[in-house]
Design a binder for these strands. Structure first.
Lengths: 222, 222
DNA sequence: CCTACCGATCGGTAGG
DNA sequence: CCTACCGATCGGTAGG
């Protein structure tokens, strides 16, 4: 009997990636075996290899799926009719939301890059570079003193990423401080005096009354 | 002929740790075999096991040796007859120096903690906590608004560690920006307005002309 | 989609 | 009789 692709093919692939992210985050890419992954998915090793040609392909899927989410945020922010301050705020808040919502994938992305084959590693690094570049340009726009000093601008950019990327080692979403609050603190440190939203006060709130005080949700979807 | 412990016993142990740090940083604790380590040390696997009872003991030695260096800095700074601003500056600069000078160990400490047995992991975490606590207290002393808000103080502390710890992913000691300059930028972000040294300026440059513009080197040793 | 296996390599230990 | 150190190989398990 001829079989076409299972109707839930994509769902199964995604389920494998989800479990892989959990396992790889917990015991590392090398520490988690394909047999472990199969067990976590309540199937066989062979089934895993039906959906992905190799363990490394699964690692790649974990990383790229996460990175694509972050890239979507970057595209959305690039399209925003807003000033740099508001763009940077939106971006950092969205990043923190994804870091928390996909903490396993974030940890895997940060810790297991060396286990990717060279070509795919380069692809991941290229995507990261685009994201870093956008943040870099926003910082330069916001801090005029950085425009004249590229090296210093890069340091500021990477220190900002350090602040938010490092959260995966200590931040507890169930703790007293929210991801948005952490984002606000990081933003205030990197761009002192920037207000919690909207960024350029002057007079823009005229027609828009009753927005959420520290709004961010505005960009969530609808 | 009777043999006592080799005269260079400690040197050999340290050489193993040094090579292990290099290998574990490059391919990960699980990715590097004891055979690889033996080859890197130009000896046999059995020799490795003569000096360390297990692979995990070597990982522990890599981490603790590095952490002890950082703890020494903390003790030294605690004994300094200086104000909090100068203490924090000294500490952050020394940390960055060690991160660069022992980049392999730093990377292993940050990435391979999960591969330590529970008891020793707890020991490492306890040492880290002491270091974090000292930085936390210095920040609270420097930023009065944090004294009333413990949660916020913790966020500031961890964001500072994020800035400097994350440098292992991007900082190039041969690049245009020095480790001391990165430390200065991080310090200026976390404690705005703090001067590059000495911390309490008022009038101290009187007798010292012609210093480097963005000086920092002053603290390197002499 | 499973059981049965493979070539290789793992961390650790044997005798001498 | 001790410790230092070697070549060889153990029982299990890895990805495929």
């Amino acid at each position: 009997m001829a079989r076409t692709q299972a109707a839930d093919y994509e769902e199964r692939r995604e389920a494998i990636v989800e479990q892989a992210a959990r396992l790889f985050a917990k015991t590392g890419f090398l520490g988690a075996s394909v047999a472990d992954l199969a067990a976590a998915c309540a199937t066989s090793k062979s089934l895993i290899y039906h959906y992905y040609p190799s363990k490394e392909d699964i690692l790649y899927a974990v990383m790229i799926s996460h990175l694509d989410q972050l890239s979507e945020d970057v595209v959305a922010v690039t399209a925003m009719p807003a000033d740099p301050a508001e763009r940077l705020q939106t971006l950092v808040h969205r990043f923190m939301q994804h870091y928390v919502g996909a903490a396993d994938r974030q940890k895997v992305l940060l810790n297991e890059l060396d286990n990717l084959p060279l070509e795919r590693r380069a692809e991941v690094v290229a995507k990261q570079r685009v994201i870093i570049g956008v943040v870099h340009d926003l910082l330069v726009a916001l801090k005029p003193e950085l425009a004249a000093d590229r090296a210093r601008a890069r340091v500021h950019t990477m220190l900002l990423f350090g602040m938010i990327n490092w959260t995966h080692t200590w931040f507890d979403p169930k703790g007293a401080v929210s991801a948005d609050e952490v984002a606000d603190v990081a933003l205030d440190l990197i761009v002192p005096g920037g207000q919690p939203f909207p960024a350029t006060p002057v007079r823009r709130r005229v027609a828009k009354a009753a927005e959420p005080a520290r709004g961010l949700t505005r960009h969530s979807r609808g």
